[in-house]
Amino acid sequence: MPAELQFSASDSGTPSPESSVAGSMLATASWCARRGWPVHPLAPGLKTPAANCSACRTNPHAPADCPCIPAGRWCHGFYAATLNQDRIQRWWSTRPDFGIGVACGPAGLIVIDIDAHPAEPPTRNRILPGIPISDSVDLTGLANGFHTIAVLAALRGQPSPADDETTLRVRTPSGGLHVWYRAGERRWLSSVGSSPARALAWQVDIRAYGSYIIAPGTTTSRGSYAPIGTTREPAALPLWLAQELERTGHLPAPSIPAPRPVPPRAHQAVLAAGGGRDHAQRTLATILAPVEACGQVAEGAGFSDTLNRAAYTIGGLIAAGRLHQADAEQALHEAALAARPGQERRIEQIIRSGLAAGLKRPLHTSGRRP
């Protein structure tokens, strides 16, 4: 890890790593795990997780069903994140060029991700989602996330998180800033990859449950993620920020409603054998219920894996002659589009790969994956 990433022995009860293994990703990964932050490898020089094994790449499946993770392999990104020091030793000893990702949800972390990308500011209603900005307000000079988070903080009479010296802050190679906080008891949702309406502010995203953050000390081809100031531990999430996150939809729905009625075409997906039309409808409704429920949960809550699993299961039932292919596929598409409107291309790709895998493995006795 970089020399500026210094941790004292009192931080963890173990000797300070920087003096003996400066630049070692293994030392940084071990340090994170000792703090209860599960880690997973990032591809060398990149911000993305290390590639899956060939079997996982060629046979799409949900992480929960993958034998690689319990076997100690790093497939499926942050789903493979671990606190196991033996596993960490093996991973980074084998590949010392791996970067380090921290799975935010299991680590109990929420990170304010402030960007400084050169871009034209959006319309006023998107600068602070949910907060109208009058035309009388002069926005001259507003150019990045540092400015928008400062505006939000000023509106609430609070200092900007970018200036919070009580918590761990990490400068990114692009000039942005990661501000780390402890999430507390609430299961905050990530806004990375979601609609702009759920960002905290323009160029200010949230990394929490359903995403990962790059560990301080990691180096990519663009530079290092370097901590600033002297604080090396995340502070508790400030109350005012928690209120803003709740306002902008970063909490899951209080409860998942009962599944909506099966789309009309699903009623035509009749079983070729084993129970008839009513059983077909119940089977399909059971498979589609988790996909439909995703419509009540913000992006980042596992939609891709849920849809992939449903497509795989339906493919297996089609292969076994238990569902009519055209109608079952149509029902799946309708449920997915209802849950994630406007994501037709992504949905089509997930369904196509999941069905292709399922069609190779007929399910004769149940809708569960073997």
Results as ranks from 00 to 15, higher is better:
Leu46Gly: 09
Leu46Val: 05
Lys47Trp: 06
Thr48Gly: 11
Pro49Lys: 08
Pro49Ala: 08
Pro49Trp: 04
Cys53Trp: 00
Ser54Ile: 02
Ser54Trp: 06
Ser54Val: 05
Ala55Phe: 01
Ala55Ile: 01
Cys56Val: 01
Cys56Gln: 01
Cys56Ser: 09
Arg57Gln: 08
Arg57Ile: 01
Thr58Asp: 08
Asn59Leu: 04
Asn59Met: 05
Pro60Val: 01
Pro60Thr: 03
His61Arg: 14
His61Thr: 05
Pro63Glu: 01
Asp65Arg: 11
Cys66Trp: 00
Cys66Arg: 00
Pro67Ser: 13
Pro67Asp: 04
Pro70His: 10
Ala71Ile: 02
Gly72Phe: 07
Gly72His: 02
Arg73Glu: 02
Arg73Trp: 00
Arg73Ile: 00
Arg73Leu: 05
Trp74Asp: 00
Trp74Leu: 02
Cys75Trp: 00
His76Thr: 10
Gly77Gln: 06
Phe78Lys: 06
Tyr79Ala: 10
Tyr79Asp: 02
Tyr79Trp: 14
Tyr79Leu: 04
Ala80Asn: 11
Thr82Ala: 11
Leu83Gly: 12
Asn84Met: 06
Asn84Gly: 12
Gln85Asn: 13
Asp86His: 15
Asp86Ser: 15
Arg87Gly: 05
Arg87Ala: 07
Arg87Pro: 02
Ile88Lys: 01
Ile88Pro: 01
Gln89Glu: 12
Arg90Phe: 10
Trp91Gln: 10
Trp92Leu: 11
Trp92Asn: 04
Ser93Ile: 10
Ser93Pro: 07
Ser93Val: 05
Ser93Gly: 14
Arg95Leu: 01
Pro96Ala: 14
Pro96Ile: 05
Asp97Val: 10
Asp97Leu: 12
Asp97Met: 13
Asp97Ile: 03
Phe98His: 11
Phe98Val: 03
Phe98Ala: 12
Phe98Gly: 04
Ile100Arg: 08
Gly101Pro: 02
Gly101Trp: 00
Gly101Ser: 14
Val102Phe: 08
Val102His: 09
Cys104Met: 08
Cys104His: 05
Gly105Gln: 02
Gly105His: 07
Pro106Arg: 12
Pro106Ile: 10
Ala107Gln: 02
Ala107Phe: 05
Gly108Val: 04
Gly108Ser: 08
Leu109Gln: 13
Ile110Thr: 08
Ile112Thr: 09
Asp113Val: 07
Ile114Phe: 14
Ile114Asp: 10
Ile114Cys: 11
Ile114Gly: 12
Asp115Gly: 13
His117Thr: 14
Pro118Ala: 15
Pro118Leu: 07
Ala119Phe: 05
Ala119Ser: 15
Glu120Ser: 15
Pro121Gln: 06
Pro121Glu: 02
Thr123Lys: 12
